[in-house]
Design a protein around this nucleic acid. Structure first.
Lengths: 346, 346
DNA sequence: CTGAAAGCGCTTACAG
DNA sequence: CTGAAAGCGCTTACAG
């Protein structure tokens, strides 16, 4: 059976379909339509289970009530929860979400933004990654009523921006290690995490620790945690066949850190006594490692909150200036990080 | 700037817009349009970066090139990877994905299916959960050109169905435990996993193990792994203040299992010597636990493959009968499960 | 071989 | 206060 249309309501009510449309868009009072007429229209609409056709509405130039989410779903930033966090928030407001895996590919991203445009999407959320030259995209983004870019770095763009500052937690971790008297830090990360690596090692150096070229241990491979763990082990084994010259190791995700924990143990090194280990993302399993794995909490829900706020405030008021929100990550101490210093709190 | 339309192409080519539409829908040859005309239309379309408006196309009754994905994104079935697995597969075929969090709520699900209908979605994928009475939905599902239901149980429905058989792995696990000489199994799970609990304990009993009412340990709480871990610990502590009367414990996810591992250790019990532990979902961190955590692999990519196959084959040929695919889970042996028996292979 | 016309369901000036 | 008309971009009989 065909869904009810504005015409079927009009027929039932003995009105023209334009009157029905006006009422259903809450413009009845503004145009001074009799309140009895309005009540009746709404009642019939409800009785007929009327839902307006978003395709037709969009074609007529009005909102399609949709949000486009462009994210590198396999990315190193554990996008997992994000799709849910955002979908839930937007669907609570009556919007529907398009999910795109932009794969950090500029060409794919461009095409998907065009797709969003053609589909009359009200707002887009775009996860930035270094591969995307944003200047080029900001023009495209401005075609939407609202657009939010989520980035790890501090970009300067004429659109609403959320800086998901992962570096913050690494700096806190470096501070902790300095306070705990560690001297020789290393960081184990997949290629392409330059900003974290530099921030961490830079801060370690600043705090008087001994940092060398060797301190940055790179592993290759994409977002697949299984592969990353294998390659982390392989890299460590290959690079440090005899002595492991560091007293602290931080890893850019918890899986890699857990693999490192095993590797160190097999090598006869104690954590945290000989080498402290810190992960990143604060996955639930951290507390169950032996020893419990210190980590860096991303605060993804805060990012989702900020996305929601930025998008819907702008859909409400298109005159707002470009805004910026910062969501810092946070070091979470656990035993694997070594002695806890008194002035630390989480 | 406005995107190119079929009219702008027609103007450029000196044709009527209907001719352009025909060519662009590859009906040129069928209608015997001059090939030179066709070539020219396509060339202009490309030059103008023409992308057809899916809203208009949908309104005119043709495919909108969209797929609706309804899933309980917080659900106990670790939906995380699924959204990506499916999005990637559909977008490779030129389709765009709507993501809905149906929250296992019948009312929400019903509304979202209606939403899909209004949006002219070509196909829907619906994750079944016990709260959804499917008979009621199968009518709604038949309104779509293609619909796939993914369920843990074996449903009988007149639509394409994927049975993601999680029980299979539990049965294999029970077999393993029997072969390893274990006598007193327990299963730790959130409420609502009755089918797994019954299948596991039933099979244990069949294999001669000693199963009592106590063997099923229930914990409350939703899909949040943090809370589940806390509650698992609380429940174990509360229920077994003195002696833990089992020699094997299987858990319905790896996080719970990792918490149990810690609880047992704190209690002075050795894994696997005193109590074997088995998780579920085969998360990457399993290999890094001490001892390495046996688990049950879900084979989510196989589910995604089956979804892709079922949907697109039906969009190609609507005459196909209702089909059924089974994707069984699989027990993955690791040390926490105790002695490995010779005839086992993974 | 090609174009004029109607229609998909909705919105919004505009005319009464 | 309310209706007839045009338009959003596309598709498809139908008439030449």
């Amino acid at each position: 059976m065909k869904p009810a249309s504005i015409r079927s309501i009009a027929r039932e009510a003995g009105l023209s379909h334009s009157t029905v449309s006006l009422v259903l868009n809450n413009r009845g009072d503004e145009l001074g339509l009799r309140s009895e007429t309005q009540r009746q229209v709404r009642e019939i609409a409800k009785r007929l289970n009327y839902v307006r056709n978003p395709l037709a509405r969009g074609l007529a130039g009005k909102s399609t009530m949709t949000i486009g989410l462009l994210w590198d779903l396999a990315g190193p930033h554990l996008s997992e929860g994000m799709a849910r966090n955002i979908t839930l928030r937007t669907q609570n407001r009556g919007y529907t979400t398009y999910l795109f895996d932009c794969m950090s590919d500029p060409e794919v991203t461009r095409r998907q933004l065009m797709e969003c445009r053609m589909r009359g999407v009200d707002a887009v959320v775009l996860r930035h990654s270094p591969a995307l030259v944003m200047d080029e995209f900001s023009r495209q983004l401005k075609e939407f009523k609202a657009a939010v870019v989520v980035s790890a770095e501090s970009l300067s763009l004429p659109v609403d921006l959320i800086q998901h500052d992962m570096v913050a937690g690494y700096v806190q971790a470096a501070d902790h290690l300095a306070n705990a008297g560690r001297k020789r830090p290393a960081i184990l990360s997949p290629h392409g995490n330059i900003s974290k690596v530099e921030a961490f090692l830079g801060h370690c150096r600043q705090r008087g620790m001994s940092v060398s070229d060797q301190s940055a241990i790179n592993i290759s491979g994409g977002g697949d945690p299984w592969k990353l763990m294998d390659q982390a082990i392989a890299m460590l084994t290959n690079q440090f066949p005899d002595k492991f010259p560091f007293d602290s190791l931080i890893c850019t995700n918890d899986e890699i850190a857990s693999a490192a924990l095993v590797w160190l143990r097999d090598k006869g090194l104690l954590t945290p006594e000989n080498v402290t280990v810190i992960g990143c993302n604060d996955a639930p399993f951290c507390v169950a490692m032996s020893p419990p794995l210190a980590s860096i909490e991303r605060h993804d829900e805060k990012v989702a909150d900020a996305i929601e706020e930025l998008i819907f405030s702008r859909l409400d008021d298109s005159g707002l200036p470009a805004r910026r929100r910062i969501v810092p990550s946070q070091f979470i101490w656990r035993e694997s990080a070594g002695r806890r210093c008194d002035h630390q709190e989480n």
